[in-house]
Design a protein around this nucleic acid. Structure first.
Lengths: 224, 224
DNA sequence: AGAATAGTGTCTGTGAGACATTATAAA
DNA sequence: TTTATAATGTCTCACAGACACTATTCT
């Protein structure tokens, strides 16, 4: 039985959020070689002694680099090969996380940058490709699920939620249909008496996720 | 900088096909410990010296264990952790492949077994979970894509293709709608003059994938 | 009062499923 | 000629988008 050659095993995380009605990714300044001091996806080695599995590692790395545990976290895709890392053959299990922008902006972590996904410069490793996969994923799931609600924070108006969906999908949505679909999803409830004023016009009713859907995606039979 | 602990890095493949109108998975008898001589998903170590990336490794392993290159192969999901392999902390990058049953049954590889996915016994490692993820994937993609066509071989009748879709989805489909959708997909062309007789009734027109779609999935705007 | 957006009611075209009818080869 | 399934035409109901109208608050 041949002993396999050692392979670098890491986890990288695409932490997405909405800022100024645009879909953005969280970048972290690298504190080690290779690419020391450059902006890249937050990531790190798998610690076999400490992490039970890769999801565990992702949670640990998120805590270390951003100080928060996002309300949505799932495996995205695994990126592998001899060419993607100057240290040699590597595996990166990429994760996909969503968070309300206020949480990051308020925690004011110095090493972090928020950058719109459609205005990224060339990043180290294959991180542009990883982010592209994450954008594909959110585009796809936003068409038929409550996924973008995790970008919206505790309470939000329907007009704001529609803007978030539109930022995820990259296209404008029809208001009546959007509201019908949100109603059909059935994951939202109005917050009694709470409204949001935004100028010289009627204020918007605020909504929140029903508690039973806080940790559970809901899917539409037919998409938006 | 801490040197990470070595992690076992493997690739496993869920090779699906239709046999007797049922969705089946290809199992391979293990030739090494752990679980020597037991049926499990075909898989093996990543060879960092030889494989450019994991897709490369999957192709190599498929060639070694089954002797064929399936017309459809994509990454499925990565399974990781300390608990899934008795040898220790491991990463398995799982792949998802589709093939026409005739190809496997004709190659008559002795180490292979074909087993319906809904009649599996307990398999080594977390292979039941990996297969469940593959079944989820094919169920999902069959709803809105030409994916199941890769299970159908070179030429096939529409009634047979419908049976294949039904096996993938696990539910009966409406004939008229199914045909409308196949027409809308636009990936099929009739094979002039070729029909299939199957009893005392009108024979079925045979179809094949248009050559431009042989290596490309086509998606429906609205599902089946 | 006017402006501007929130929120809702109604109409219409598209499309999916139901049903029915025709087509065709084997027995 | 019967039988069984292939293949297609037609009807109807549901739904998505278009449009129009009402509601409400700030200026």
């Amino acid at each position: 039985m041949d002993i396999p050659q050692p392979i670098i095993s890491t986890v990288d995380i695409v932490l997405l959020l909405i800022k100024d009605e645009r879909l953005c990714v969280t970048l972290s300044k690298r504190d080690k070689d290779p690419y020391e001091n450059q902006e890249a996806l937050p990531g790190g080695y798998i610690h076999a002694e400490e992490d039970r599995d890769c999801l565990d590692a992702a949670v640990r790395i998120l805590r270390q680099k951003t100080g928060l545990l996002p309300p949505y976290l799932e495996q995205l895709k695994t990126f592998t090969g001899a060419a993607r890392d100057p240290r040699g053959w590597s595996i990166s299990v990429a994760y996909f996380a969503l968070v309300d922008a206020d949480l990051i902006l308020s925690s004011a972590n110095p090493g972090l940058t928020i950058c719109p996904v459609d205005a990224l410069r060339r990043l180290p490793f294959d991180h542009n490709e990883i982010i592209a996969a994450a954008v594909d994923r959110i585009r796809n799931k936003s068409q038929y699920s409550s996924l973008p609600c995790y970008l919206a924070g505790e309470t939000f108006s329907l007009p704001r939620l529609q803007k978030i969906y539109e930022a995820c999908l990259g296209e404008a949505l029809h208001k009546v249909s959007f509201r019908r679909k949100m109603d059909e999803l059935g994951v939202l409830e109005a917050v009694p008496g709470q409204t949001e004023s935004a100028g010289a016009h009627r204020p918007a009713q605020m909504y929140r996720l029903k508690s039973e859907f806080k940790n559970q995606l809901k899917l539409l039979v037919r998409g938006l």
